[in-house]
């Protein structure tokens, strides 16, 4: 399995151009967690439509999203991410079912922590109205105060607590 990656500055430059193209064409930035939200809203609306219409969070999102919550810009963009990521994996020969983990924990532990981490990220992104892509990166591109504060909070917290979670990674 090849593990050579693109030069990070070149990758960053290309990613920046992609983000710029997104802003120029659509007027909005990139995102990711918004697609998770659409998926959850759609799922709740299918499984328990009455609950979805009574609960304020789902009702508000059903109103602001399309009648079909999955017909949203970010859902299509994230589908694209899956395709693009897969293509890159094919090109660089990196397709494999593996669990990556630090040397001092078991795979089961790693998956447990991945679940908790995902949960926290999904939750936090709702407060901040975006994740690393939608709030931090896109917010930085358009110099949004809120976006840059969220970015500093994410990375600041990461560094502040990294020591206490070092067993997970090193």
């Amino acid at each position: 399995m090849k593990t050579t990656y693109m030069n990070p500055y070149l990758a960053g430059f290309l990613l920046g151009l992609t983000l710029l193209a997104t802003i120029v064409i659509t007027g909005r930035g990139l995102g990711a967690s918004g697609a998770l939200k659409s998926a959850v809203v759609a799922a709740v609306n299918t499984v328990a439509p009455q609950h979805a219409h009574e609960s304020k969070f789902y009702a508000e999102n059903l109103r602001s999203l399309h009648e079909n919550p999955l017909k949203a810009w970010l859902v299509f963009e994230v589908l694209g991410v899956v395709i693009g990521g897969f293509l890159s994996g094919v090109v660089s020969d990196r397709l494999a079912f593996v669990t990556e983990k630090g040397p001092r924990i078991t795979s089961t532990m790693r998956l447990g922590f991945a679940l908790i981490g995902g949960l926290l990220f999904g939750l936090g992104a709702q407060f901040a109205r975006g994740c690393t892509s939608g709030a931090a990166l896109s917010g930085m591109a358009v110099l949004s105060t809120g976006g840059i504060i969220t970015m500093m909070a994410i990375f600041g917290t990461g560094y502040a607590i990294a020591y206490f979670f070092r067993r997970l990674w090193i």
């Binding site: 991410v81 994996g89 593996v98 908790i116 600041g156």
Partner: peptide
Amino acid sequence: GGVIMGFGFIIGGFCPGTSVCGMAIG
């Protein structure tokens, strides 16, 4: 939100965009 996501990043090792990307290659 940023603080919660900071915990999520350290504990989970991904952010939403990158996790979708990682998922795509297995």
